[in-house]
Design a protein around this nucleic acid. Structure first.
Lengths: 230, 230
DNA sequence: TTGGGTTACTGGGTGACCCAATTAACTACT
DNA sequence: AGTAGTTAATTGGGTCACCCAGTAACCCAA
């Protein structure tokens, strides 16, 4: 029996979500002026204070700027901004799927090659566990399938023994999450996926760097093919 | 004559700074309970609302957790936590310099190779401009030097015509900013840097993918050497 | 030992209020 | 006609007093 922790949603969080969506969909562009606090608070049926809390978070992320007496504005994304890691992530979220997939092909092949060189017996065990998990239960919901897929790919980057690789991988898997979930619609996809994963695993287990790179490239190309066709 | 924009410090910002310092200096460890709102607000001589704004930001960054009725706590940082992009950034910021440099060697070599293949005459022009900018003014402050270095590397990733590469590059350059600034202390570093950049530029201009990869690898290795020695 | 109350405390949230800066419309002067 | 000065409405910054619901610690009875 498994229970999840109940996490109540705060008001400010919903506000952030709404505004972030508007920014992502370009309905709010840099330079745009937001409605005044009092007006927006009333529109959202929340208090000015709660709205302010949301604005503070967005402000600290460098997404908006408050001018006392003037109003609030969507910030221009500037290179020189010190707090700009947030902006970078936002830009990444706006990237096209195909660009993301191309980047992943480049990065993950290299990561797998390094993993094949450095993987310890423990690493290999962890990868194998992740590999088998996908094939254990016959009926899994799509999001659970994606989760176990994530686990496999993270296990590989973990074997590179460089946390930057792990985090870059996390970022990519996260950004491609929706896309990856869609691929399960294809009949027989799961079995094919397992075979591809298995090939990657074998290459890493053999410490065959070249083979590992090729196997994962094949895997990623097959994913791209699906995405293009969908 | 240059003027900086005057940015008034908000109350919540000072609070964040104070608490962040406490966390960095380990005076607040994961699991620790913070003083109650009302008490802390009084101690800081600010209103409860302003204090709350600070807490919201820290909360959204995943540093603290609020339990209504229970109190506020410094959060345990877990690997397996929600695949939140916030956490990924935080983890990346905590990565070691050498790990970041290794990742950059892997990624940027590939990016440069692709750039060499795809660069249009316009791209090449932009890269050349960035290259020359560094050599124009004799006396530049360290942060300005780093800036023009950033521009050069971003111009290259721009020539890859994949925005994901540009953003990954931005992320790395940002995370390595401090480190890169330190390298200017080395005598003759700037001239050497220029020569290395020049070699990279030439290879890209010739559309010589392999040469471009090698040139940039050499450049990055020379940076790593400096970092190791410092 | 376990479950039900009790109570003080804590975070979540609200609404009215004051201040200072901005903005724009208006006025007076040149 | 153009400019400087004034004024009033609006806006964000911040405070205060207040209410609600969940928590935690304790006591008590089954």
């Amino acid at each position: 029996m498994e229970f999840k922790e109940i996490a109540p949603v705060r008001l400010y969080e919903s506000v952030i979500e709404q505004i972030m969506d508007l920014i992502k969909n370009n309905e709010l562009k840099p330079g745009d002026k937001l409605p005044p606090e009092r007006e927006l608070a009333e529109k959202l049926s929340i208090s000015r204070n709660s709205l302010r809390e949301a604005f503070r978070v967005l402000e600290s992320r460098g997404l908006i700027k408050s001018k006392p007496g003037g109003g609030r504005f969507i910030r221009e994304i500037r290179e020189n901004d010190h707090n700009n890691t947030e902006n970078i992530i936002l830009s990444l979220e706006k990237s096209s799927i195909l660009e993301l997939l191309e980047a992943r092909e480049i990065f993950e092949v290299k990561i797998a090659e390094i993993a094949a060189q450095r993987a310890t017996p423990e690493d290999i065990e962890i990868i194998e566990e992740a590999l088998n998990k996908m094939n254990q239960k016959e009926e899994l919901k799509d999001d659970k399938k994606t989760e176990s897929d994530t686990e496999f790919h993270l296990a590989i980057s973990g074997a590179s023994h460089n946390f930057v690789f792990v985090n870059i991988m996390k970022l990519h898997l996260d950004l491609l999450k929706e896309t990856r979930e869609k691929t399960w619609q294809i009949p027989g996809r799961r079995e094919k996926q397992y075979q591809e994963h298995r090939a990657i695993f074998r290459a890493i287990k053999e410490h065959n760097s070249k083979k590992a790179g090729e196997a994962i490239l094949k895997h990623l190309r097959s994913i791209r093919k699906i995405v293009v066709e969908i």
